[in-house]
Structures are given as C-alpha cells and as structure tokens.
Simulated scan of single mutants.
Amino acid sequence: MNVQDFQKQLIHYAHSIGIDKIGFTSAASFPDLKQRLKLQQQLGYASGFEEPDIEKRTEPIRLLENAESIISIAIAYPSKMKDAPQSKRGARRGIFARASWGMDYHTVLREKLAKLEAFILLHAPDAKLKSMVDTGELSDRAVAERAGIGWSAKNCSIITPEFGSYVYLGEMLTNIPFEPSVPMEDQCGDCRLCLDICPTGALIEGGQLNAKRCIAFITQTKTMVPEEFRAKIGNRVYGCDTCQTVCPKNKGKHFAHHAEFTPDPELVKPLLLPLLEHNNRTFKETYGHMSGAWRGKNPIQRNAIIALVHFKERGAIPKLISILESDPRPVMRGTAAWALGELSSPEGQAALRIRKETETEEIVLQEVEAALLKE
C-alpha cells in the first residue's frame, strides 16, 4: 500500500462522511503537555474528570503497541439557535452550553471514527487502530494542535480558522506511518478578552485553566456549589460559553450543516420550574440523548435553583419550600435553603425556622442557619 496515496483517499473519505477537518501527527510523546499536566496537578487545577495517569495521556505508545501516527478529526457545531424562547417572569429559563446542543457529540464522533476505522481496515486489513473521544486517555486538544486542526488558544480551546472554536474533537491511534500535517501558528496575538471576562477568573493566564473555578466544571459537580460561585453561574444549568462567545475569532461563526446537532430550543433553554419536577426516568427520557445529561439530573436541578435566584423569581418560593421540606437529597435541600434566604419572604423564613429544628444533615443546617440570618 502506498501510504501517501492512501492518506489522500482517507482525507477524501473523511470529508464524504461529514468530518469537517482531518489532520495527522506522529505518535511521539507530548513532553510539553506532560510538564503542564504535572503543574496542573501540583497546583490543584485539574478537574478530576480527566484520565489520572499522566504517562498514558502523554505517551501514545502506551495505548497502542507500535503506534506510528495519530489521526485527529474535528466536527463543527452551531453557535446560534432558531426561535429561542424568551425567559420571562413566571416562566424563567436556564441554558445548556452549545457543546450540549442536539445529540451527544460522543456518539456522533464515535460513529464517524468507526466508519474511518472500517475504511482503513478495508484497505489495510492488518492495521492496528484505537479511537477515542473526550473520555479517552489522550488530550484531544494537544493532538489536534499538533495535527494542524487549529491552534491552542488562550481560552484553552482549539480555534480553527474555518469554524472558530465551535468544534468537537476526536482522534485515532494507528500503526500506519502517515505524513504529519503542519501545525498552525498561534493567532491569539495580544488579545486577552477571554481572560479578562471569565466570570470566575478560572483562566489564570493564556492556556492555563484552574478547572476547579471554571463554571463549566462547577455546573457538573454533585456537591454544594461554593457560595462565591453561586451568583456567577447565572442561569447556566450546564456548561459555560463565555470564553467562546467573547472571542473575536468566533465572530460570525455559525455552522448548522450537521442536523444531529440542531438544538431543540425547549430542551437547551428549559423552563426552570418544570426542570425541578423530573425524576430519574423522565429526565433520562427527555435529556438522555444530550451530552449535558451525563451526570444525571441532580447537578442540573441544583443549578436550576441557583438560576431561579439569579432571576429573583419569587414564584419559585412554594417549590423551594417543598424541596426544603421533603427532598431526600441534602444538596437540593441545602441549595433550596440558600435560595429561600436570598428571596427572603415570610413563608420562606417560616419554613427555614421549622427546618432548623428537624434537619440532621450538617451541610443543610449550615445553609438554613445562614439563610435565617438574612431575615
């Protein structure tokens, strides 16, 4: 097999199945990334969602014996939605980040990579392949940067000239020695809008993120949201797009050619009070196809309470009292207690006083007592 000719065929095939960009790099280790990841761990900036073994994340040969190359792919997703419903008094709405619009991108990209694998094996039956998307050991962004998909921006995203940073990434390790693509020059220049506008200061400096302060991370945790972040979450129920929406390289970038990522406005801008009514089954039936549902309903519902406070939605007080009184989840009771303190009403304060006498969970009691001080 002539590898050069086959590489051209592979690129053509990739585009024919809806892969927007494809690039190639060697399976050599990532020494710079290794140092950055070690520093992240030392500083306590890692989210904990990543593969914990830094060697696996930075040495592809550990993942596929005799690996020679890595194929990187990118698929664009939309930045705008048609007929977005308005949030109004009595019908307040949250927002899912753009990366959770439409079908779960893990599913879509894995299907594309599976087709690529089948194409490769058709022409090279002895090829060794290993694909991954997001949850794999390798850093999607480090691979994409080296494979010429885009440059690694100050906001820790990969920015492509064609689609901005609105792209999903995936990769495939192989023992076929493809010709490496040429990496791109950094085009952020002196711009630091993303660093200056990040609501929580999570972007420490260009290319360095304290994930523990990132709203995208915080909205996915299952514990109480630290008080310093509650007002900053706004109406986000999953993820955060601020460092993307302010980026000049994303101006005017909107691609809706992948129908599977077309957002359902009622799902990605959900009514907050009905969101609180879901049980596990109905939540999965409604949102299970979205990537934002991967942590289940609990973080989303906790964030919905915070969003109701953001809107000062006093119509939510009866529901919040009900959660405080009878929800079996301490995090939900605690968040409801905080919310009732923020919305301050006679009925809310009465419910808090009653709860103070019966609550046994310390995290809830702390929130109840703090809320009563706001009387």
Rank of each mutant, 00 (worst) to 15 (best):
residue 62 R to P: 00
residue 362 E to N: 10
residue 58 T to K: 00
residue 48 G to C: 00
residue 226 P to M: 09
residue 232 K to C: 01
residue 345 S to N: 04
residue 318 P to I: 07
residue 78 P to E: 12
residue 166 Y to D: 00
residue 305 I to D: 02
residue 67 A to S: 13
residue 160 T to H: 05
residue 170 G to E: 09
residue 197 I to L: 04
residue 118 A to D: 13
residue 69 S to R: 00
residue 221 T to W: 02
residue 201 G to M: 04
residue 265 P to N: 02
residue 11 I to Q: 15
residue 44 G to D: 01
residue 27 A to L: 14
residue 242 T to D: 12
residue 98 R to Y: 07
residue 74 A to T: 07
residue 337 A to Q: 00
residue 233 I to N: 02
residue 4 Q to D: 14
residue 356 K to N: 13
residue 160 T to W: 03
residue 166 Y to N: 05
residue 304 A to T: 07
residue 367 E to L: 11
residue 158 I to C: 09
residue 4 Q to M: 08
residue 97 A to F: 09
residue 16 S to P: 11
residue 269 K to M: 15
residue 353 R to V: 01
residue 254 H to M: 11
residue 226 P to V: 07
residue 298 N to T: 13
residue 84 A to C: 12
residue 202 A to W: 03
residue 139 S to W: 04
residue 222 K to T: 10
residue 199 P to A: 05
residue 35 Q to L: 01
residue 58 T to E: 02
residue 346 P to T: 04
residue 28 A to R: 15
residue 6 F to K: 04
residue 235 N to G: 05
residue 95 I to S: 13
residue 212 K to I: 09
residue 313 E to R: 03
residue 347 E to F: 00
residue 182 V to L: 10
residue 181 S to G: 09
residue 25 T to Y: 15
residue 352 L to Y: 11
residue 175 N to F: 03
residue 139 S to F: 05
residue 81 M to L: 15
residue 241 D to I: 05
residue 110 R to T: 11
residue 165 S to G: 10
residue 3 V to G: 02
residue 221 T to E: 11
residue 364 V to M: 08
residue 131 S to M: 14
residue 127 A to E: 01
residue 373 L to E: 15
residue 245 T to C: 07
residue 136 G to C: 11
residue 233 I to H: 00
residue 234 G to T: 10
residue 202 A to I: 05
residue 250 N to K: 10
residue 361 E to W: 06
residue 238 Y to H: 13
residue 333 R to Y: 03
residue 90 G to Q: 14
residue 323 I to G: 03
residue 343 L to S: 05
residue 91 A to P: 08
residue 152 S to A: 06
residue 107 T to H: 12
residue 292 G to P: 09
residue 82 K to L: 14
residue 73 I to S: 08
residue 245 T to E: 09
residue 248 P to M: 14
residue 197 I to S: 06
residue 219 T to D: 08
residue 16 S to V: 13
residue 88 K to V: 11
residue 287 Y to R: 14
residue 62 R to C: 03
residue 240 C to L: 08
residue 136 G to E: 05
residue 369 E to V: 13
residue 342 E to T: 03
residue 46 A to D: 02
residue 153 A to T: 08
residue 204 I to A: 04
residue 131 S to T: 15
